[in-house]
Design a protein around this nucleic acid. Sequence first.
DNA 1: TAGGGCTGTCTTGCATACAAGAAATGAACG
DNA 2: CGTTCATTTCTTGTATGCAAGACAGCCCTA
Lengths: 248, 248
Amino acid sequence: MQDSPIATDKKTEIEEAIVSGILSGRIKPGTRLGESQLATVFSVSRTRVREALMRLEARCIVQVSPRRGWYVIEPSAEEAMMVYGARRALESGMMRSLSALPPDGPAILEAHLDQERAAIASGDRQRLTYLMGDFHIRIAELSGNTVLVDILRDLTARTMLISLQYQSDFHARQSHEGHCAIAAALIAGDVAKAAALSIEHLDEVEAGLDLTVRPDPLADLRHSLSLPTSRSCSLQSAGTPFPTNQGD
Amino acid sequence: MQDSPIATDKKTEIEEAIVSGILSGRIKPGTRLGESQLATVFSVSRTRVREALMRLEARCIVQVSPRRGWYVIEPSAEEAMMVYGARRALESGMMRSLSALPPDGPAILEAHLDQERAAIASGDRQRLTYLMGDFHIRIAELSGNTVLVDILRDLTARTMLISLQYQSDFHARQSHEGHCAIAAALIAGDVAKAAALSIEHLDEVEAGLDLTVRPDPLADLRHSLSLPTSRSCSLQSAGTPFPTNQGD
DNA sequence: TAGGGCTGTCTTGCATACAAGAAATGAACG
DNA sequence: CGTTCATTTCTTGTATGCAAGACAGCCCTA
């Protein structure tokens, strides 16, 4: 039951399924999201699929090319830098506001870090990817501010797309250590240090990207040729085109 | 030209018109937004209206009550505090990242402050309301980070709804002075001071609200009775139900 | 008069049909 | 063989129709 994640109400089912796919790295930037295909997969009419896609478009997660199709956003280098910039501003500011951690805060952080360690040990990369992004959301949750959580959730989804597009290799251990340092500072109550570490951490992750070279300079051309992106997207023709139940 | 603002593409026309109405205070929290009415006003079918409303729902600006109707969000006191909290985190973090202002930054800030002064002098409250929120967006624009701008734009719209619902009286002069101080610190290059002033400024504005008393404790009840909110919303029966062209 | 149920009306929810456009295909032609 | 143009197919864009539900008003009853 933990596969079809949360399984919220009918209304946001499709939206959440797509976001979940992105968050766990199953759906890549540039993936085509055909209305009819999704309608078939979810056994609904195009109307509801469109509504979900519209909402995702408002969240800057998908994009429609008029009369051509819906595609998961392929963030440009500029957009990538801006997303990281926004996260630096938001998260550092958030840290500074976290002077009083809730009583169970340390335990929550420790539990999450344990999960990260377990994922590293087991080599479950999809889960690790998800956890790495989720750490920051965990912290936002500690603030008790759901507005902050929602904003950060969207930024995390976009970050995931950026990583998939520009990250040459994933320094899981380095990221994990960054998380540990931030958590330690927070638990120690040193919010200024936590803020500084957050900026540093995001800088590191951003530095791990290769933004100077476009990962797929022929992306536009490929689109005109209707080739998915660089590799197959598996949404196009596979028997189970939308593996929402994959992963943990 | 500043009335029907931007008048972007056909696709976001309805959405932007509603947001613009909120930003200038013409549309109040709790206002009912009937699909058919909007469809008539914009001379389109309900389909496109629904799409616009869905996008606005994703931005936490409107809300649908199943089979009853769409309403502009009436932020709860909790949500109000969280929005201000998010803005404090975001804006203070943003200030600290603004070490290098663009060359025309000071001029832009001064020009905006002049507009605020002019609006105060002329007593054009609608325009003043709009400008007060827009100041913060101006600063985000100085960062050159459109991601930040978009996030702050949505938060500003929500802030506007909060103000309309909870602000007993509008201390325009005090807010203006806060803006002046922030601008001065930014121009002087003292980002830490600008960050501190931002938090202070938002605290002041939040303190100006009356969050302890629900402005309309019977809101839910009224809804069940299908009375708009507390007063008439003018969208229901007026001849020109949706005055998008009103205001400056 | 107060309460309960029925019915009419108005709303959104959702599916479907068709229009409009883009891109791929293939044929004709130089 | 390469190019151009018509056609065919596939996609989204938009409107419309009908179903489902909520609410208001009314009548009926006790």
